[in-house]
Every structure is written in structure tokens, then in C-alpha cells.
Design a protein around this nucleic acid. Structure first.
Length: 857
RNA sequence: GCGGGCGUGGCGGAACCGGUAGACGCAACGGACUUAAAAUCCGUUGAGGGAAACCUCGUGAGGGUUCGAGUCCCUCCGCCCGCACCA
């Protein structure tokens, strides 16, 4: 018997599928559509196991839905703009474009060896002019609709390299290449007004439009959008201490106006105008603000920095308490971008305010009394109380609940004209400017007389200028140094003007690619998307990708879909009907005696111990996400060469639930390979079996097992439980192999079902088996098997019987037995009698079809 | 720091709505085949006790609710993801 050889068989079927154009998207729109999309890859150069996992999952769904009669759209493309190409250009002198497209060619070939059911004719790269010119058109549309704005905001600035740094290029507050301390620098930048859609982006999370999304992702987005109700309140600055710009008052935002009587200070952001005004004549204040500016721009850096304040020579009057003076601080944890950039601090009922008050020895006054506490003894000196309760020490609010006090406080503030109720959002507008070359150029022109002007649509695309590869060795954006590209006549006055040199955030590229995929290639020259095509295919029925994209990418795509609908390009608000977030691929880490990381392929077992190829001892470290820096990577290409694509796909799906991390182990991959070989071995003796097989009848073991397997695997695939589907296939295979005496029709039915059930997971093997058994056409076009409900019903059940919660016996009862009969049966059981001997039975709990519990004492 | 998750045998995991904890796979051990090894096939395998029947313990730690808790609640520990210029 010939051993199964994936090296021959996998390319054979890949060629056969190609030759038959088997995965070309059908134009027949009468069938129900199904659009399955995996997050497209960044073309880093090589595929990794994370890709294999992501695309194997999508492929299972695509092939399964196809077998269920759907018209399936399943495509692949490249998230091709971004920083790594420019870093490569700095290191290797390769032009970002050449580097990127060479990587794409390489990765495409690697992906094809996995045997994915993809329509490659729809492939796109976001760096193609044919893609980004339509992104420029969308940008202009949004601009006309008022969704584009220019305003100042901060970037990480490397003062040595004179360049803007990404957050990941800032390491411990220093530039990654220069090592210089990074500064915050204000630049005029482009923004998309995602906050205009905040209300609907939030509402859709809860109103059923995203019922196919995981709860945790919806919750993360909800918290990210962060709608909070509260109030603006103006505090009068005390005379004689006014700031040098003459400000008489300071406006704060608070979500807890009920705690106003517990206020003991005011804090403003380092870039608040009041702070700047004081700093003008106060070198110490200026120095403190400068220090704050040296913290990075990321929220994480700001939050983790030690909370610090600087007392300005200013005091504010408490609006309700005569004579209470509130000192005004500049504090490094107050954000200018949220609310008014100023807060009042209530140390008794807020963590950060409490820390701040302890540090600067400010009053800590409790104003909310928890239920059951005595106001005379209750203290918040040791820590704030943030729960519900009743107001005290609070004048007109005394005795009210927190909620009632919030309302009463707002009413009073409004009545005396010092403030009003307000809603604030944590969500900020989307800064899309990048001071980099390898991105989509922003279609704008700066004219000294006309200001910032749109590039007319007829002049699109604004192509990236041709820049020599050597230009990337110099820090900064090479576009700034291309006068022949930079200088253009103003589209409005024809006077001298300059092109915008900022390019777009790559999140813009990935915010609408799903709709571009849905647009037929023949229609792609006419606009960003084809509305009719999108009306048929969208929304994406199943979107699959990493949890790391839970907020930004998904939120941006949701915003873009709304904006594109408003611009008339699409008819939907939500791009992804169902979302699945898959876990990472991890691997053990290995180090040699010197602490150097070692590739798994360079580790060998010598006498039961791990060693390097040259014999040095190796220590095994923790299992971590596969990463280049720790060298704990396994190349899919090597695995496919060794075991075949089917075994790789099988293992990556078999070992862990899809949403959790999976650990790649060579033993597991070998196990998958054994399975592939065993299935072939099981099928091989039955050449042509399907051709003349009679219809199976009866209800023998094998038939029951077959239909149970069909029902179980189907249900598991529908619910994204690939690991369980695979476990069931193992069980079913064992039954098939043991069923020596089964009748030929039952065996044909079992093998036919087996091959179709494995087809989404191991498609090459399934085709080979299908052909060998005499199945018609490709198994990929064969209908999914149906489970016969009559063969799934059990006649008798085995019920566990507990005595006082401990399992003591099992009884066999008819599936339709009533509770009384089950109870009688249980009490009659010899084992049960032994355990209740000498006790009085107090209660018998019968859970139908589940369990019996006898309570006795 | 803030937001969201996860934690079950030697390992990956299963256990549906609170109802027999450990399905299935890996590893290990025993056996068959072989001159031998590999491959393959069959069997055993949570821990402790017992000759056995069987008993006790056991789902990160501690507490609680319940006839019954891996599952629900509270407190704590550890790890992972995100934090707006990595993609």
C-alpha cells in the first residue's frame, strides 16, 4: 500500500482547483451569499503561524459554507503601507516599494501552499495606486461633508534626528535610534471627526446591530468611547491672585457634581491656558510644565508616570461654601483633551484625588456616607469611598442619594448661573496625519492666499513622488525634500502653493478594504466601491482576526462605514455582522548557556536532555507569543515541507479553542501527520466504494456513530469550536476502523461522511480520498452531509445517582421515563440502598435526563 | 495606572442553562509485530489509600450561595491583550 505523500498530493489538488477556477467568486446572485473575511496581513516578508491559524479558520468556514450551498466570497490582500518598509529602507537601502512588493510576491507563494479556498483574482494591496487613489477620493468626500478637520496636536519629537516618532519608537522616553529624550511637539495635523458618530457607534453596541460580536469586544469599545454625563462648573478665581492674562474664573468638568462639598483643590492640565499664563512670569511653573512635556504622548506613559502637581499662586472660591479657598495646581495626569482640561479634586471619593491630597497634604473631607455607616466615625483618611450612599457634610445636598444629589447639584449650578449639565466623551477625534513617506498622500494643497485647498478630483491620484532609495537614510520625511513634487500651482488661484506632505495613518487603509474586496474587479475603476456589488455582499458575514484589534481597527472601520454610507457609497452602518477574535500562536523559548535565544529547529534532544546542534546545554523558558526577538518561531513553510499543509492546518485548529492562545509543539504536529496518514489508510482499501453503493438502512452502531458525528461536527463548526469538531472526528474515525462487520452500504455512508467532514480542515487529503472512493467531482463541491434525526435519539439513558451530592451509583432508565419512575428506580438501587442505610431520605431531586440526588441524614 | 480577558491531570484541552470533572489529542508506561530500531497496532494512565469491592482528596488561593459549584457571588494571586503614531 502506498504511503500517503502530501508533497505530491497537495500540489496536485492545488493545480486541479486552479485549473477549474474552483474558487472564482460566482456571479450567480440567486444563492444566499456568505462573505468570510480574515484580517489581511502586513507583508512583512514571511508568513507565520499566526497567519496559518487565522486563515485556516476562515478557510474552514469558507469551505463549510460553500458545501452548505452558499455563494462564498473569500479573498486575500495586503495591508501594505507602514513603518517597517521605511525601517527596512534605512537598514538595507531597498526602496520601501520594492521591499514591500517583493515581500508580497514571496508571501503570496507561501500562502498558496496552505491550500486556501481564496479568490485570488480579487487580490489588492493598499499601496497600489489603484487602491489609494480611491482612498483620496473618500477623504475628499469626507472633507466636503465636514468630517475632516485640521487642528494642532502633539507628536513625539526626536530632537536629535529631527523627526516624529511612533509610540513604539519611544523606549523609556527616548528615541530608539538617537537615544535622545523625546519631547512633545505641537504640529498642525489632519483629523477625521469620529466623535461626530460617537452616539451611534455607542448605540449600535447595545441595540442588537452587533449581536454577532463577542461581549468583551463590545464592552471594550463601549468603555473606549466612554460617554459620561456630568457638568461644567465655573469657579471664581480669588481677587488678588488672578493670572497674568486676567482670567477671572476657571471652568472644570466633573462627573461627580454631588461631591462638590468635598472639593479641596483644583487641577489643570500642563497645557491649560491658565498654566501657560502663569508660566510666562514664573520660571518654576515653566520648568514644571516643561518636565511634564517630556512624558511621552501615550496614555499609558501619562498614567504610569508618578502623579505630580505644582501649586500655582492662585486660589479659587468654593461656589457653595463661603470662605473655602481651593488651591489651583498644575498636574501631570490632567488631560487638556478631555472636558475642559481642568477638574476639582474630591479626595474623599476618588482614588487619584486621594493620592494627590495625601502627597500635597490637602484636606480630605467625606461627603458620601456608605449605607450603615455612622457619620460621626466614618473616615476616608485611609482611602476614598467610591460606592453608593447618602450625602452628608454637604449643605443643601444632605440626606440625598448620590444619584439624586448629582441632579440637585446640577440644578443648583444652573440656577445660580455657574454651569450646566453636559455629556463628555472619552473618544477623541482620529488623528490621521503621519509625517512619513510610505502611506497614502493626503490630497491637499497649501496656498498662501487661499489657505488649505482640496486637490480637485480630476487631479487624483496624488501619487507618491519617486524618491531614491538612499533618501531614507536621512531622518525625516523625504517628501519634504522633493521640490519638483512639492511645488504646485494652487487649484483655486493658480498662485504658487505646496502639496501636503503628510500621509494617512495605515488604519485608514484597513478601514474600508472589506468593501473594496466586495467590489467586482471590473467595477474597481469607477469608484472606491461599487454600490450594487456591496449591497449584495455586505456586511461581512464572518470577520476573523486578533483580539489586539478589538478597539482601534474595528472602531475605525465602523466609523468609515457610516461615513461612506453618508457619502452615498454604501447602504449599511455596520461592516461586520459576526466577529471572531482568535488567540495567538505561542511556543516554548530556548536559551543557551550564554543566554542567547535559540531557534526551536536548532534544539536537539541528546540523552533525554535538550542541547544545541553543537552539543551545548539548552534551558527551556516560558511559552510565549512567537516573536523574532526571542527566536521562538516555527516557519510554516518548514512545517508544510515536513508534514504537509493538511497536517499543519489540522494541528493548528485541533489543540486549543480558537479564541485562546495555542502552543505550537512538534509532537502535536507529528500527531496531526499521523492522523492524516491514518485516514488515508482507512479509506485506501475501499477504492470505488461510493460508485455503486446501495442506500444504507437500519440503525446499527456504525450508522448511529456516523450521524452523531455529522450532527456534532456541524454544530461545532457553526459555533467556531474547531478543536471539538476535530475531537469528534477522531472518535468517529476510531469507530469506523473498528466496525469490521458493518454492511457495505453503512460503510460507504460512513466513509463518504468522514471525507466530507474533514474536507474543510484537510482539503487536499479529502479530495484524494474522495477521488479514490469514486465520489463525483471535487469534494469541495459536494454537499455537506445531513444528520438523520431518527438515528440520534437514544432509547435508554444512564443516569448518575448522588447521595448527599456524591455520586454513588448509575441507573439505566428509559429515555421517556417520568420523574416518579426514575426516583423509584434510584431508591431501589443496591448501591444507593447501601449509602442511605440508617439514614432518613429527606428529599429526592430528579433532573430529567441528567441526574438524581438523594438528600438523606 | 486604566479598560478587557484567562487560570482544570505530566502537557493542550472537554464538561451545553448549576447536574457523573478529565471527552479527544500529546507525552509516558506495558504488550504485539521486528534480528533490531523506526513506523504501525492493542491496552493502561488525576493524586492518595486498599488484595479487591471500594473510600478519601481534587478545577490558581481563601470565603460564600445551593440538594448539588470548574460553572454563580465576594476578596486575593499569577499571566495575557489594548491604551489612540506597531500592524
Amino acid at each position: 500500500m502506498a504511503r500517503y505523500n502530501p508533497k505530491e498530493i497537495e500540489p496536485k489538488w492545488q493545480k486541479a482547483w486552479d485549473g477549474a477556477r474552483a474558487f472564482a467568486t460566482a456571479s450567480d446572485r440567486s444563492r444566499p451569499k456568505y462573505y468570510v473575511l480574515e484580517m489581511f496581513p502586513y507583508p512583512s516578508g514571511r508568513i507565520h503561524m499566526g497567519h496559518v491559524r487565522n486563515y485556516a479558520m476562515g478557510d474552514v468556514i469558507a469551505r463549510y459554507k460553500r458545501a452548505r450551498g452558499h455563494n462564498v466570497l473569500h479573498t486575500m490582500g495586503w495591508d501594505a503601507f507602514g513603518l517597517p518598509a521605511e525601517n527596512a529602507a534605512m537598514q538595507t537601502s531597498a526602496h520601501p516599494r520594492d521591499w514591500t512588493y517583493a515581500n508580497i510576491d514571496h508571501m503570496r507563494a507561501e500562502l498558496k501552499s496552505i491550500g486556501l479556498a481564496l479568490d485570488w483574482s480579487r487580490e489588492l494591496a493598499t499601496s497600489d495606486v489603484g487602491y489609494y487613489r480611491w482612498q483620496q477620493k473618500l477623504f475628499l468626500d469626507f472633507w466636503k461633508m465636514g468630517l475632516v478637520e485640521r487642528r494642532e496636536s502633539y507628536v513625539n519629537w526626536d530632537p536629535v534626528d529631527m523627526t516624529v516618532l511612533a509610540n513604539e519608537q519611544v523606549i523609556d522616553g527616548r528615541g530608539w535610534r538617537s537615544g535622545a529624550v523625546v519631547e512633545r511637539k505641537k504640529l498642525s495635523q489632519w483629523f477625521l471627526k469620529i466623535t461626530d458618530k460617537a452616539e451611534d457607534l455607542l448605540a449600535a453596541l447595545d441595540d442588537g446591530r452587533l449581536k454577532g460580536w463577542p461581549e468583551n469586544v463590545r464592552l471594550m469599545q463601549k468603555n473606549w468611547i466612554g460617554k459620561s454625563k456630568g457638568a461644567f462648573v465655573r469657579f471664581r478665581l480669588m481677587s488678588g491672585t488672578s493670572a497674568s492674562d486676567g482670567a477671572k474664573e476657571i471652568e472644570i468638568f466633573t462627573t461627580r457634581p454631588d461631591t462638590l462639598f468635598g472639593a479641596s483643590f483644583i487641577a489643570v492640565a500642563p497645557d491649560h491656558p491658565l498654566a501657560a499664563a502663569v508660566a510666562k512670569d514664573d520660571p518654576k511653573a515653566a520648568a514644571f510644565i516643561a518636565e511634564c512635556q517630556r512624558t511621552g504622548t501615550s496614555q499609558e506613559a501619562i498614567d504610569k508616570a508618578e502623579k505630580k502637581g505644582f501649586a500655582l499662586p492662585l486660589f479659587a472660591e468654593h461656589p457653595f461654601i463661603d470662605g473655602r479657598k481651593l488651591p489651583v495646581y498644575v498636574a501631570n495626569f490632567i488631560l487638556m483633551g478631555y472636558g475642559t482640561g481642568a477638574i476639582f479634586g474630591c479626595p474623599g471619593h476618588d482614588e487619584r484625588d486621594h493620592d494627590f491630597a495625601v502627597k500635597y497634604r490637602l484636606d480630605i473631607i467625606p461627603v458620601v456616607l456608605p449605607p450603615g455607616e455612622d457619620p460621626k466615625t466614618f473616615s476616608v483618611e485611609g482611602g476614598p469611598y467610591v460606592g453608593p450612599g447618602t450625602l452628608f457634610n454637604s449643605g443643601f445636598l444632605d440626606g440625598l442619594s448620590v444619584d439624586a444629589a448629582i441632579e440637585a447639584a446640577i440644578a443648583k449650578i444652573a440656577a445660580i448661573g455657574i454651569g450646566r449639565a453636559a455629556t463628555q466623551w472619552r473618544l477623541r477625534d482620529w488623528g490621521v496625519s503621519r509625517q512619513r513617506y510610505w502611506g497614502c498622500p493626503i490630497p491637499a494643497i497649501h496656498c498662501a492666499t487661499c489657505g488649505v485647498v482640496r486637490v480637485p478630483e480630476k487631479d487624483l491620484p496624488v501619487k507618491l513622488p519617486e524618491v531614491p532609495a538612499a533618501a531614507f537614510k536621512t531622518p525625516g520625511n523625504p517628501m519634504d525634500r522633493m521640490p519638483e513634487w512639492l511645488n504646485v500651482p494652487c487649484p483655486e488661484c493658480q498662485g504658487p502653493a505646496r502639496r501636503e506632505t503628510d500621509t494617512m495613518d495605515t488604519f485608514v487603509d484597513s478601514a474600508w478594504y472589506f468593501a473594496r474586496f466586495a467590489t467586482d474587479v471590473a467595477h474597481r475603476g469607477n469608484g472606491p466601491v461599487d454600490k450594487a456589488d456591496c449591497d449584495y455582499w455586505l456586511p461581512v458575514d464572518q470577520y476573523i482576526g486578533g483580539i489586539e484589534h478589538a478597539i482601534l481597527h474595528l472602531l475605525y472601520a465602523r466609523f468609515f462605514t457610516r461615513a461612506m454610507k453618508n457619502a452615498g457609497h454604501l447602504s449599511i452602518e455596520e461592516p461586520f455582522a459576526n466577529l471572531f477574535t482568535q488567540g495567538m500562536v505561542t511556543h516554548a523559548t530556548y536559551q543557551d548557556a550564554k543566554g542567547q535565544w535559540i531557534l526551536p529547529e536548532d534544539v536537539v534532544t541528546v540523552g533525554g536532555k535538550l542541547a544545541t546542534v553543537s552539543g551545548e546545554p539548552v534551558t527551556v523558558g516560558p511559552v510565549e507569543k512567537m516573536s523574532k526577538s526571542k527566536k521562538n518561531v516555527v516557519s510554516p513553510v518548514d512545517i508544510i515541507a515536513k508534514y504537509g499543509a493538511d497536517a499543519a492546518r489540522w494541528f493548528i485548529l485541533s489543540d486549543s479553542p480558537p479564541e485562546r492562545d495555542v502552543e505550537w509543539t512538534d509532537a502535536g504536529a507529528q500527531g496531526a501527520w499521523k492522523l492524516v496518514a491514518r485516514i488515508w489508510e482507512t479509506v485506501e482499501p475501499h477504492q470505488g466504494l461510493l460508485a455503486g453503493a446501495a442506500a444504507p438502512a437500519g440503525a446499527d452502531e456504525l450508522r448511529r456513530a456516523t450521524h452523531q458525528a455529522i450532527a456534532g461536527v456541524t454544530d461545532d463548526i457553526e459555533h467556531f469550536r474547531f478543536n471539538k469538531a476535530i475531537a469528534r472526528i477522531y472518535e468517529f474515525l476510531a469507530t469506523v476502523r473498528k466496525a469490521d462487520g458493518a454492511a457495505t452500504p453503512a460503510r460507504a455512508e460512513a466513509l463518504s461522511a468522514l471525507v466530507r467532514l474533514i474536507a474543510p480542515f484537510t482539503p487536499h487529503l479529502a479530495e484524494e480520498c474522495w477521488e479514490h472512493l469514486g465520489g463525483k467531482g471535487f469534494v469541495l463541491n459536494a454537499p455537506w452531509p445531513d444528520a438523520d434525526a431518527a438515528l440520534l435519539v437514544k432509547e435508554t439513558l444512564v443516569l448518575p445517582v448522588q447521595v448527599n451530592g456524591k455520586r454513588r451509583a448509575e441507573i439505566h432508565v428509559a429515555a421517556n421515563a417520568d420523574a416518579k419512575a426514575v426516583e423509584r428506580e434510584a431508591l431501589a438501587d443496591a448501591e444507593v440502598r447501601r449509602h442511605v442505610e440508617g439514614l432518613t431520605v429527606r428529599k429526592v431531586v430528579v433532573v430529567p435526563g441528567r441526574i438524581v440526588n438523594i438528600v438523606a441524614n
